[in-house]
Design a protein around this nucleic acid. Sequence first.
DNA 1: AATGAATGAGACTTCATTCAT
DNA 2: CATGAATGAAGTCTCATTCAT
Lengths: 226, 226, 226, 226
Amino acid sequence: MATSTSTALTTLIRRRNKPTRAQKVERTRAALLDAAAQVVGDVGYVEASITAITARAGVGQGTFYNYFDSRQELFDQLLPAISQQMLDFIKQRGDAAGEEQQREELSFRAFFDFLSEHPEFFRVMYEAEIFAPQAYEQHTEMVLNGFVRILTKARSKGEIKGYDAAQIEALGLILMGARHYLCQRYGRQTGWKERLPEKVVSAYMRLLRHGLYGAAPEPARKRNAG
Amino acid sequence: MATSTSTALTTLIRRRNKPTRAQKVERTRAALLDAAAQVVGDVGYVEASITAITARAGVGQGTFYNYFDSRQELFDQLLPAISQQMLDFIKQRGDAAGEEQQREELSFRAFFDFLSEHPEFFRVMYEAEIFAPQAYEQHTEMVLNGFVRILTKARSKGEIKGYDAAQIEALGLILMGARHYLCQRYGRQTGWKERLPEKVVSAYMRLLRHGLYGAAPEPARKRNAG
Amino acid sequence: MATSTSTALTTLIRRRNKPTRAQKVERTRAALLDAAAQVVGDVGYVEASITAITARAGVGQGTFYNYFDSRQELFDQLLPAISQQMLDFIKQRGDAAGEEQQREELSFRAFFDFLSEHPEFFRVMYEAEIFAPQAYEQHTEMVLNGFVRILTKARSKGEIKGYDAAQIEALGLILMGARHYLCQRYGRQTGWKERLPEKVVSAYMRLLRHGLYGAAPEPARKRNAG
Amino acid sequence: MATSTSTALTTLIRRRNKPTRAQKVERTRAALLDAAAQVVGDVGYVEASITAITARAGVGQGTFYNYFDSRQELFDQLLPAISQQMLDFIKQRGDAAGEEQQREELSFRAFFDFLSEHPEFFRVMYEAEIFAPQAYEQHTEMVLNGFVRILTKARSKGEIKGYDAAQIEALGLILMGARHYLCQRYGRQTGWKERLPEKVVSAYMRLLRHGLYGAAPEPARKRNAG
DNA sequence: AATGAATGAGACTTCATTCAT
DNA sequence: CATGAATGAAGTCTCATTCAT
């Protein structure tokens, strides 16, 4: 990390006093991506002008073009830059689960919580379909793959029965759409000020467990408290 | 140079030959909305310039402002203008059902078919969230209300059990999200050239009937053919 | 010229009072080309900004793009727009000549005079080599062709002897270079305030008649006075 | 960290191994001028950005401003830096001549050959009229003076007759213009891949010897072979 | 009501130059 | 002296909107 001309001593000193040149660069780049995420979160991609972004990042307009070739390039990098940390966050929370159906519940909650803590991410992600289609496509593909992997596993474990392998993808899409719309209404529409209502989680989970129609009577099962 | 007062005679002639003034106005207005829908369907709201819209409608640029106060106003009227015919189409097809769960299947198929025949509607509807938020909100509210009404009815009929009244809304949102994502992948992504795969419909319906996890063995039930 | 809906009367009235819409368009276009020529003449292509040009033309900046797709397109049209009138002017003056050698003298004088009256043309023409290479190439080709035509004619008349047909082009280029450099020094460098010195014309013509070296003694020929 | 005072020893070592500080400086300066000439030759002054020049010179952008106050200053020094070597080259080749008219032929050939070997020089020289007018002016003045000197000498030797002293300058300009245009067409336009056609040289020389019109029959004179 | 030329605010982008390291 | 990130002035261009015809 230290430049090749730095002795251990100078490195130490730097570590206390000032950032390295390379560190400053990385910091500026991060500041720009961060600012962009915030601006997009606030006003959407359409109004996320270079002026607005650089102003929020606290750098000159020209600086922008030392880091990105164009506004579009930034947009293309924005979602990927945040995408991974979201997936990590969710995966980590989901891994605490025993059964796959519990994993889905944890994962759904984690999705909501992540957006709750990074509200700007909602627009960054969903408006990307329009303003950074390729990035959106990749992101969607990754998320869908995650679902498919988990559902396939659940199916091979015997937790899921009665579905073709060919139907797994459709199920994944349904879960993604459900998440999207539920978080939109119960999170974003309230400015992420409320927690995710337990009624919603239980409806979601009951649908996954028993379907809508002609369901078996609710078994005596421990439910996650609200 | 023709006098502006119409004699009974000219009126008669017009009735046969030419449209009334008011009719022409309405026709132009419709042409503009129609053109806008097509343009938005083709290139999205961002690139739906006044120039593109008026050109497609076959009128001069300036004419636009005789019908709409601004580009935004047009956008705000675009979704509502089409929304109703979609809902009618779907309702009509759904009304053929006996049980509510069959209605949902018919309605889902109808949604797909409608988009298939009016592919421009997909972008008009979903991009409206960004470019005509109020219209989108209203549209969504209407659709959601439709779902809620039907689900509530199904619940009062006893077809749906085990859900609170308070959870009905969440269920409606899930169905909306599912539709959105399934049509996106199986319709739009293929350019609406393929029909909706039956595997997808049956997966969707099986989820609604039995859920994902620990489902009862598939009962002997007549399935809609592909 | 009048629009197809104009009666003879309205045309007459317009001729006195106001320009037609189409006339105004043509006028604006001309104003822009004219302004561009002046600006380029004053400060060169590099500094001929859209702002400067539209300001000089007395129109808004945006108006520019109703007439030209880009700054470059204007530059590409600038030289051709003036080129023809120069060639016409020169041809006309040259046609008064009897012998071809007299034509060359008249033509040379005409070239100087034209630039004298349209001083902006000098930069428009010669800087085009850099800023509108294609236009420059075409212009040069036309001028060269003119020279070649005349020289060829003189040769077939027997006024020019001792040169291959293949050498005619080179001779044309020499004359073009000579014009360029002489007008540069004796016209442009003095701000076109002085007339073309007769000494220069006679040197030019003597070179053409007798060459530089080992020339025959100057024959008793009427010379244009200085 | 090395001390700035050189001991006799280090000086000795340096003399063998490394360039002096001053030498390095001079080398970098030369590298920049050289790079600039190449870049200008390739893409012209307009696109000769500091970035392009320093990149080609293999130094950092900032380094540029240790050697030149501004881009313009570099441009102003570019032509002078090369000018002299061209004049030397031409003079040397011309000095082999006996008569002045032969000198002119050699000199013309030398001009072409020099450009042929340093093709970048063409744009450096002729675009300087626009981008480094002062340098261009000086260069032109020098070249013109050279012509005037030679022509004057030829005149005083009696090789040139029939021209005023006051006309010598005009003759010099004509020769310069001729060179320019002939090299442009027969050298640059072909990418300097062909040699100068002998037809062109002989046409040029015949013009200088006998003029265009009414020339004496070509005397029995040795011609330079192609 | 129909038209399309005129307009200017504002967006993106380039690049010579500065300056701290 | 070398470096390259930071800067902002300035330029080109787009397009919704206005308005005279």
